[in-house]
């Protein structure tokens, strides 16, 4: 608790993913990697070298990618289906719905380069709709780890979980926040810092920005609670209700549209169970302009300083207690 960023060294979470995947591949011959020509961007080169026959590359064909994944699971294998998140989720959404979620196929969908990791490539390559598209599907946990430690833990968990999973990864470097040896628990937020003035909730590449924002707020004498909420579905209702009750205001930030993502999932709990002022930061329902992910996050008010300012404005909206 009140952990400061344990390391400022930035890590590409894909490295943690493939490191665990390669180890799982050694321990369990049922582990297969499936990709849509994305051997490089999914960093599957090492897996391919070690287990060439277990790298199933369907070519540039995402609908087939996901369908083949479902069939491999039916045949008793443990497929990790990898692809750039905008194409994996957008192109193959109906396959994810029917073949994976509705069929309850034991397939791990790994959305690589999610959010605005491909910032400069433009909105076709941004994946800022994928929480919204996937979190409405029954049977499908949706998870966006915040650092390499949580990524490794989530991959480990996904392999042991009997059912479909959507794991949303980035390629944008993030510092490690969670302690070494961290165990991933589905649907459980991590309290990274405690405070009573406001709760900052994020996942993926935004969690470390929230931690820095909390440090800025602390310098101003405002103590913020920070929750890392990797699991977007099922949302951690208990942590959200406790945040509302204990701090009276909730600010969320995500590398996603403000429509339908983490903030929306939290708001669904807040309005029903614990109404308090809320602010949802993200891409405000537009196609984003050109720029790196870091630039765009700043552009849309998610620099740590801007988050801190938004938190101050939000706190001012809290009803005055009698």
């Amino acid at each position: 608790m009140n952990a400061v960023t344990t390391s400022r060294k930035l890590h590409d979470c894909r490295d943690a993913f493939v490191s665990v995947l390669e180890r799982l591949g050694e321990e369990n011959t049922k582990v297969v990697a499936v990709c849509n020509d994305s051997v490089g961007s999914s960093k599957l080169g090492g897996f391919k070298t070690k287990y060439p026959e277990r790298l199933v590359n369907v070519g540039i064909a995402e609908q087939n990618l996901v369908g083949v994944g479902a069939g491999l699971a039916n045949g008793g294998l443990l497929p990790f289906v990898c692809g750039a998140s905008p194409f994996l989720t957008g192109r193959a959404l109906e396959q994810i719905k029917a073949d994976i979620a509705y069929s309850n196929a034991n397939v791990k969908l790994i959305g690589i380069s999610s959010g605005m990791a491909y910032g400069e490539l433009g909105p076709t390559h941004h994946s800022i709709e994928d929480f919204a598209w996937t979190r409405v599907l029954p049977n499908l946990p949706v998870v966006a780890p915040c650092d390499s430690i949580e990524t490794a833990a989530a991959v480990e968990w996904a392999a042991s979980y009997d059912g479909p999973v959507f794991l949303r990864l980035s390629r944008v470097g993030v510092p490690d926040l969670l302690p070494a040896g961290h165990t991933f628990e589905l649907g459980k937020a991590n309290l990274l810092r405690d405070g009573d003035a406001v709760t900052l909730i994020a996942n993926g590449t935004l969690t470390h920005r929230m931690m820095t924002a909390a440090e800025i707020l602390a310098e101003r004498g405002i103590e913020a609670r920070v929750l890392n909420m990797a699991t977007v579905r099922p949302i951690d209702v208990e942590a959200v209700v406790a945040a509302a009750r204990d701090t009276g205001a909730i600010l969320t930030a995500e590398e996603h549209s403000t429509y339908g993502g983490l903030g929306s999932a939290i708001a669904e709990v807040v309005v029903a169970q614990a109404p308090v002022p809320m602010k949802i930061l993200g891409v405000p329902g537009i196609f984003a302009p050109t720029g790196s992910a870091e630039f765009l996050l700043d552009e849309f008010g998610m620099s740590p300083a801007a988050v801190a300012d938004a938190a101050v404005e939000l706190i001012a909206r809290k009803p005055v207690r009698a």
Partner: peptide, 16 residues
Amino acid sequence: HGLPVAVGMAKAAKLT
């Protein structure tokens, strides 16, 4: 939908 899934099933048999 069925044919891609069937391709996965047949591929699984090849792998196992």
